[in-house]
Amino acid sequence: MSVFIIRRLLQSVVVIWVMSLLVFGGVYLIGDPIDMLINPEADQEDIDAAIRALGLDKPITEQYWFFLINAVKGDLGSSFIFNEPALQLILARMPATMELAFAALFLSIVLGIPLGMWAGLHPNSLSGRSIMTGSILGFSLPSFWVGIMFIMFFAVVLGVLPSGGRGETTEFLGLQVSFLSWKGLSYILLPAINLALFKLSLVIRLSRAGTQEVIHQDYIKFARAKGISEKRVILVHVLKNIMIPVVTILGLEFGSVIAFAVVTETVFAWPGMGKLIIESIDQLDRPVIVAYLMIIVFMFIVINLVVDILYSVLDPRVRLQDVKA
């Protein structure tokens, strides 16, 4: 197990380095921030001074080298706009995004698995087919449009839920969270459902496919032949088997939940990293963009590692292979 983890960590370092090259190069290509940053009436001397101050007069290789040295020290540069360390700027907004992402993940699991299993057990019933139709809609409707419809319906027409923002937060383990107060919940509900829709549809499909496959296995028939209750057959024998692919895939998809949060946060004015990155791209605030992308890459790597470990905990067959390896 530990050999496996060390090997994975070394691979991760290489991946992060390659990504830093791509991200830095890519951001360099998308445009020159000077035009955006400088007062159009400034004279050439001011412009040159600003360019030097931001380090933009150096060749790109040198800029990258500086970036890399500082990055290893934990400094991803300072925002051109806010004049604050980019990392700090992003980390300050991370809890809001994380809470939203976890809320979406939670909804996908607690709704998706039962709905998917139901559809798998009753594939020809009206309810089963409605669930599957719903999941197709969840897959295909654009997230921003659904978000806007949510706001129209619940905030504008019915007026029962706020249209955006995060509202009040409660302190929990040193973090500001929404889910501990009714008021906070009312703010997070719509964006969380909006963000969850795609993953919810995915979980429904995975659970249904898994249920339909598992339910025909001999071990389910054998379980029934033992005379155990149908409830136990479904909740223990079937559920435990379909949890493996669902948890694995959902875990791997968690990174993309955070990435998708960009859209939801923009629609619902949710003060998270996604909203920040959209604003930073607008203003070509290179250090923030680079720092954001690096953090996302880092998170993907951590998530994959955690999922692999979790997978081996859930599936005894994988556990054994690791011990041997």
Partner: peptide, 8 residues
């Protein structure tokens, strides 16, 4: 195939 692979 007769024993559930994920249960002891």
């Amino acid at each position: 195939m007769t024993l559930n692979p994920v249960l002891r």
